[in-house]
């Protein structure tokens, strides 16, 4: 954000040839190689053999079981990334995915406690989406009515959400028959998401991919998407052109929150089956980074979500094969993100 006084040279298409895909690929390769090199140095410092560790990680990531794991990890990430992408188009920073995911899961679990039968699952999904939307709505209402920045409030609400969930599972919703660990009673079979035939993957991934396509279509091909982009580009101009900026911001954020809430509830009904501390494993934050890695474009964000899911699953193999803590993989993820973000992206002219 340093201010530049020297005029930025304007790239003329006549003089400077368009940088080829080869150069871009080179930068990507260089960035990734740099990240892996630093990670290897750290592994050596820890006394682990980087070659076998990384090979083990890749091998285990491509086994059938791991691929199913990756898909299941990616499903909520894709939804939560869309929860960042959609508001970002209107210029809103939704750092509150984590809280919205938690509240989505809490709302789903709450419905699961009282409703049974075939209606339970659809109602849970709806409740999750509404819960997430409510949570995002709190932040965006403060923005639209009194002008408090949404990045700050969504971040704060993440912690409130976590406390809400912990409060519920330590007291009112605690499973009396459960083991010592505080958690809600597990969902019944009919409340869980069905599996895709012949796999261990739950149907949430279908929902996530459909949502991503819907977001892409909305942003790309609808008037609403265009209005969001205008608002995000220049809110003042949008206002003068007669757009109802407040309502647009509100809608974008509510939809985003609903997507994040849905992420929470499919994670609950597809993988976890009960609320417990540490339920979300940073889904909201990782999804924020996935969305950002993809420069807030919906379909690349899906790819980024899958990539980060793969890295996270690779972390579990680190623990099993090399005896390193699973959270070690956060180092690799962060290094790759830093490399990609700092050294491959087009420099913004701002």
């Amino acid at each position: 954000m340093t201010t530049q006084l020297t005029p930025t040279p304007v790239a003329s298409p006549l003089v400077s040839p368009k940088p080829g895909y080869l150069a871009a690929a080179g930068r990507w390769t260089g960035a990734l190689a740099g990240a892996i090199a630093i990670f290897s140095v750290l592994l050596i410092a820890k006394g682990a053999n980087p070659v076998t560790t990384l090979v083990d990680m890749v091998v285990s990531m491509t086994s059938g079981f791991s691929i199913e794991q990756i898909v299941m990890k990616a499903a909520p990430l894709v939804l939560a990334a869309m929860a960042v992408v959609l508001p970002a188009r209107a210029g809103l920073a939704n750092v509150g995915g984590e809280g919205q995911v938690i509240i989505g899961a809490v709302a789903g679990a709450g419905v699961g406690l009282v409703v049974s039968g075939p209606a339970a699952l659809p109602l849970m999904l709806v409740a999750g989406a509404l819960g997430g939307a409510l949570w995002a709505g709190l932040a965006v209402m403060l923005r639209v009515t009194v002008g408090v920045n949404e990045a700050v409030t969504t971040l704060l609400l993440n912690y409130v959400a976590l406390d809400v969930m912990l409060y519920l599972i330590y007291e009112p919703w605690k499973d009396a028959q459960g083991s010592g660990q505080p958690a809600t009673p597990p969902l019944s079979i009919e409340q869980r998401l069905p599996l895709l035939s012949g796999t261990a993957v739950h149907a949430g991934i279908i929902l996530a991919l459909l949502a991503a396509v819907a977001v892409w279509f909305t942003l790309r091909h609808t008037a609403f998407g265009f209005r969001l982009a205008v608002t995000g580009g220049n809110p003042e101009a949008a206002r003068r052109a007669g757009l109802r900026v407040g309502r647009l911001l509100l809608t974008a954020m509510l939809l985003g929150g609903a997507l994040a809430g849905l992420a929470g509830v499919i994670h609950l009904a597809g993988v976890e089956f009960k609320l417990r501390p540490g339920l979300t494993t940073n889904i909201g934050y990782i999804a924020f980074l996935a969305a950002w890695l993809a420069r807030h474009n919906p379909l690349p964000a899906v790819a980024a979500a899958f990539m980060l899911a793969a890295i996270t699953v690779g972390g579990d193999s680190l623990q099993l094969d090399s005896g390193l803590p699973a959270a070690t993989v956060n180092v690799l993820m962060a290094l790759i993100l830093l490399a990609v973000l700092g050294w491959t992206a087009k420099r913004s002219s701002s």
Partner: peptide, 16 residues
């Protein structure tokens, strides 16, 4: 985004 990434870096380094 960079701040969050740095947070994850710290989380990973300290767990390692």
């Amino acid at each position: 985004a960079t701040g969050l990434t740095v947070m994850f870096l710290g989380l990973g380094l300290t767990s390692l």
